[in-house]
Computed example of a mutant assay.
Amino acid sequence: MSEVSLAVNGRTVTGTVEDRTLLVHFLRENLGLTGTHVGCDTSQCGACVVHVDGKAVKSCTMLAVQASGSTITTIEGLADGADLHPMQAAFREHHGLQCGFCTPGMIMTATDMVRRHPEGLDEATVRAELEGNICRCTGYHNIVKAILAASQTMQKADGAAQAA
């Protein structure tokens, strides 16, 4: 058993876990953050993506003890207060979801994608970078539309913040 301490969605949490406990299971079972989904447990589907120190990580491939000392953001912590994050709002506005199972992982992957491409995104880049995130419902068309729309909104907001 090992002690872990993480900053999750802005608050410090600690817990004792078996050394083999995956980060996804720690988030869901120990912290009750069930927005991070368990799809395949083999890093194939992307339903479990969270941000670890600002970068998208498939939490089924990381042990909780490996994440100790890190800052974790889950889908529950992405929004600022009552307002949806621009990526969440774009998924809703552009119908980028159907059953919703893959949506948290898609949104977390997409927000990291925007961060890594401050110059902007195009459809080919979005489609290529979504590899490893599986959606069985939408056919990806509306997911790509949502990501491109949110990317523009997020870039405008970043530009306005830098100008201020």
Rank of each mutant, 00 (worst) to 15 (best):
M1L: 14
E3F: 15
V4E: 06
S5M: 14
A7T: 06
A7M: 15
G10T: 01
T12P: 13
G15P: 05
G15Q: 10
G15I: 05
T16P: 08
E18S: 11
T21G: 10
T21C: 09
L22N: 06
L22V: 02
V24F: 06
F26N: 00
E29L: 15
L33T: 04
G35F: 04
T36F: 01
G39W: 04
C40L: 08
T42L: 07
T42W: 06
Q44W: 10
Q44H: 12
G46P: 05
A47G: 09
A47Q: 00
C48F: 08
G54M: 06
K55I: 06
K58Q: 14
S59V: 01
S59P: 01
S59H: 03
S59A: 13
S59N: 10
C60Y: 02
C60M: 11
C60T: 02
T61G: 08
M62I: 14
L63T: 11
A64T: 15
A64C: 11
Q66F: 09
S68V: 04
S68E: 07
S70F: 11
S70K: 12
I72G: 00
T73S: 04
I75S: 08
I75L: 11
L78E: 11
L78Q: 02
A82V: 13
D83P: 01
L84W: 08
M87P: 12
A90Q: 12
H95T: 01
Q98L: 01
T103R: 04
P104K: 09
T109K: 06
A110K: 03
T111Q: 05
T111D: 03
M113E: 00
M113V: 12
V114T: 03
R116P: 00
R116S: 09
R116N: 09
E119P: 10
G120A: 11
L121S: 03
L121T: 09
D122H: 03
D122L: 05
V126K: 06
R127E: 05
R127F: 05
A128H: 12
E129I: 06
G132R: 02
C137M: 11
T138M: 05
G139L: 14
Y140Q: 04
H141V: 15
I143L: 10
I143K: 03
I147E: 08
L148I: 14
A149M: 13
A149P: 07
S151V: 14
Q152V: 11
T153K: 12
M154C: 14
A157R: 14
A157Y: 08
D158R: 15
G159P: 00
A160Q: 13
A161I: 09
A163R: 15
A163E: 14
A163F: 07
